[in-house]
């Protein structure tokens, strides 16, 4: 009798603990994610509905006034346009360069050692952090720097260009730097994807009389499609959020020529102390990111099945 009750109590305890165990293991995660993402998002949304928080001890509720203010502001439009230009160009060129390098590294024409060596060189830009990349390119793109020298020497330009200091070229220049620093991520992923394409697909294609372009168009590209879509969406989300590179090369200047949403938000908050406007701005960026992320998660879910 006592034995049975004890075992059933034990069994019950065992069952309860088994039910609670997953939450016990997840508890640190849940606590951290609540503090680090749930609460902050609620806070930033709350801030965005108030009249200047943080600086004002008695902030009042103003509804969507801050959103109306930023969405009708020309500076916001400039920043939005610059962000989209910066992001789209980066995604497109990351893909082109990443795919070209991946295909180069995937040929059988060179021996494995040479391949490994070039692979390391090609990944190099990815190893450096954005602030170091920014300083390095400031040095190279300096009007008296090595890039202008090489372009003048090769006859491509006739006078020195202020790459980061001129309103006409600064946005292209920072976009170029971002392209340089970001393609290895694509290259590495696409190389893994290329190696995953079964060889007999190409053999079958060759037997059917397909030439190299046709093999690329009808076998390589369709096989890489899911990876390319994932990469482009991830990159879109990350590039849209880029702050460091622009902050440290041009700081958004000259005269807003390279202002993006993140640098604009930062300036609003920590230079002009307009925390509520900045929060509204930050919330818009969040909405844009989650919009793309929604498609990314859906796409990942679809390819998982």
């Amino acid at each position: 009798m006592t034995v049975t009750t004890r075992t059933s109590a034990r069994a019950r305890w065992y069952k309860t603990s088994k039910r609670l165990a997953p939450f016990a293991y997840l508890s640190p995660t849940l606590v951290l994610l609540t503090i680090l993402s749930l609460i902050p998002i609620v806070m930033v949304f709350y801030y965005s509905l108030m009249d200047n928080v943080v600086m004002n001890p008695d902030p009042v509720f103003v509804g969507l006034k801050n959103y109306v203010e930023i969405l009708t502001d020309d500076v916001f439009h400039t920043a939005l346009f610059n962000t989209l230009y910066f992001t789209l160009m980066s995604v497109i060129f990351h893909l082109i360069i990443g795919l070209s390098f991946a295909m180069l590294l995937n040929t059988d024409a060179i021996n494995p050692f040479t391949k490994a060596l070039f692979r390391v060189i090609y990944i190099l830009p990815w190893v450096f952090t954005a602030s170091i990349i920014a300083i390095l390119w400031r040095l190279m793109l300096n009007p008296n720097g090595v890039i202008n020298y090489l372009l003048e020497w090769s006859g491509l330009i006739s006078q020195k260009i202020e790459w980061l200091g001129s309103r006409q070229v600064a946005l292209h220049a920072v976009t170029f730097i971002n392209i340089w620093s970001g393609y290895p991520f694509y290259m590495v992923s696409l190389l893994a994807g290329l190696q995953g394409i079964p060889n007999d697909m190409y053999e079958a294609g060759t037997i059917d009389g397909a030439n190299k372009q046709q093999l690329f168009r009808f076998i390589t590209l369709p096989q890489l499609r899911p990876i390319i879509i994932s990469l482009a969406m991830l990159d879109f989300i990350w590039t849209m959020q880029q702050f460091t590179l622009i902050w440290m090369t041009t700081g958004g200047g000259p005269i807003r020529a390279t202002e993006v949403l993140s640098t604009l938000t930062y300036k609003m908050a920590f230079s002009s102390y307009e925390f509520s406007l900045a929060s509204a701005n930050a919330f818009v960026i969040l909405a844009l990111s989650l919009f793309v992320a929604y498609f990314y998660v859906r796409h990942q879910g679809a390819t998982n099945e």
Binding site: S37, M43, Y266, F283
Partner: peptide
């Protein structure tokens, strides 16, 4: 989803 949250959004809070 947390990975998609922009750092700049979290910065002010």
């Amino acid at each position: 989803g947390v990975q998609a949250i922009p750092p700049i959004t979290l910065l002010i809070p």
